[in-house]
Amino acid sequence: MTTGGGGDKGLAGLLDRLGHWVVAGFNEFGFAAALFGESVFWLVMGRRRRQTVRLAPIVAQAMEIGIGALPIVTVLSGTIGIMLAIQGIYSLRLFGAESRVTLGVAMSTVREFAPLITGILVAGRSGSALAARLGTMRINQEIDSLTVMGISPVRFLVVPALVAMLVMLPCLTLWADVVGLFAAGLYIAPQLGSTLGAYATEVVDLVKLNDMLHGLAKSGIFAVLITIVGVVNGASVTGGAEGVGRMTTRSVVHAISAIVITDMVFVFMVTR
């Protein structure tokens, strides 16, 4: 993004580049916000404008985003559940409180690790795919082609992806909750000399609806972030196949950063 027009040397050049960079950054934020607004607009007003958002592409995207990610989400959330259980028991044993490990594992899985790991996985799988697809369509003039046909590319391409993501990411997160807690139980129950049934009862007792909603709300926000970041990067592709590759990478890095930072902000606002 450093297309500095002026001198390239010294402090002036640095300030010049910094200025360009800041302006470009703000532009991108504005573009992202406008895109989200337009998506909501088409979702609500599409029918009245004779441009209905159709169900078939939403279902197709949901299959790709949700069902396609199921195996890897299962493996990783299970792994993280076991890892949390091991670390929890190790650290709690330092002051002889390992019997309280279920509380820590349950809270951190449901409130934090399940939504976070699912978001990161989906950003890597589907956010990048979205960016690559839109970028390729852009350099093939397919986006222009939609526009000149009188079909809004946002309505036709972005809204189905956004809706599918908003439905599937919380679903995947819920699944990650279940798998993560189950896997943790497989380690915790024998370690504490208890049974899986007793562990399950304890978890159901400990995890409140509020905790579930905390995680699911975050996954909803992540869904919007992943989609919008993917679309913004895909739509900004210039310079052929190399450009598509560059923007795809960029979209993954940006989406994961946005997810982690938003997570922190959300937790800070809600939890204090």
């Binding site: 093939n140 003039q141 397919e142 082609s145 526009t147 000149v148």
Partner: peptide, 14 residues
């Protein structure tokens, strides 16, 4: 735009 048609250089088929 429903009254005009465009054939792009690359075809731009989806």
């Amino acid at each position: 735009r429903t009254r005009t048609g465009v054939a792009f250089q690359s075809g731009a088929l989806f």
